[in-house]
Amino acid sequence: MYVVFGIILAVLVLALHERLKGNAAALSQTASIFGLIWVGLVIACGMISNIGLRSVIELSGKEPEQARSVWLAIDSVTEGIGGGNEIVGGLWVLLLSIAALKSNAFCKKLNYLGLFVGVAGIFTVYPADILTEIFGLSQIIWFSWLGYIMLVESS
């Protein structure tokens, strides 16, 4: 799922940059840099998980304790680059929302929600599951609303 999300996110990052670059060029470009970095981290996280899971499954029948140790190591890596640490995604949403506010793109309520989502993502630097959950759930709402607005306005 991470890999698919990363691919779709790449398209969204570029589409939003195109939409905002006219009135908030520097902010849109900076946001896009963080968005594309996030794309790479998300895809890498998914690929590490996929390959790691295969290794753990192969080991689990023969050496269950070693399989558990390998999975703990893989989990630490994936959580560190994007599973439980959403700073880069938070920066992307925050900068994007500031750019959208400056350029009067989208509705203000969506942009303010984006500010909240971005700050929540940055706060995931503190290792508390509740912060990651707040970021994830609020971002689902933000993505859904953004998608709806982009579809309605393009038609």
Rank of each mutant, 00 (worst) to 15 (best):
F106S: 01
K102V: 08
S103R: 06
A24I: 00
I74D: 04
L113R: 10
A100C: 08
S69H: 12
A25T: 11
L101W: 08
P64W: 07
G80D: 11
I122N: 08
N111W: 03
I81M: 14
I51K: 09
S28R: 04
A67M: 10
I87S: 03
D129C: 08
K109F: 07
A67K: 07
G84W: 06
C107T: 14
V125N: 10
F116H: 14
F106K: 01
V56Y: 03
N85C: 07
L41P: 06
G83T: 02
S69G: 13
W71H: 08
F123Q: 14
Q66A: 10
W38H: 09
A73D: 11
E63P: 00
I57R: 01
G118M: 05
G90I: 03
F34Q: 04
Q29T: 06
T30C: 08
L115H: 07
L27M: 12
A44I: 02
L91E: 09
T30Q: 12
S76C: 12
N111G: 13
I130A: 15
I74S: 05
N50C: 04
A44S: 15
I51T: 09
F123E: 04
A24W: 00
V125F: 09
C45W: 07
L115G: 11
L94W: 01
W92K: 00
G80E: 15
R54M: 10
S32G: 06
G89N: 02
I51A: 10
T78D: 13
G89F: 04
C107M: 10
G35W: 04
S55Y: 07
L101S: 06
G35Y: 04
W38V: 06
S55V: 14
E65V: 02
L91N: 01
L59K: 05
L41V: 02
V42M: 15
A67W: 01
N104Y: 05
K108R: 12
L110S: 09
L95V: 00
E65G: 06
V93N: 01
G61W: 08
A67E: 12
L110R: 11
S60W: 01
L36F: 09
A31M: 03
R54P: 00
Y112D: 09
T124R: 01
L113M: 14
L72K: 15
T78S: 14
E79S: 06
S60P: 05
V119A: 15
L27V: 08
D129G: 13
L53I: 05
G40W: 02
G118N: 12
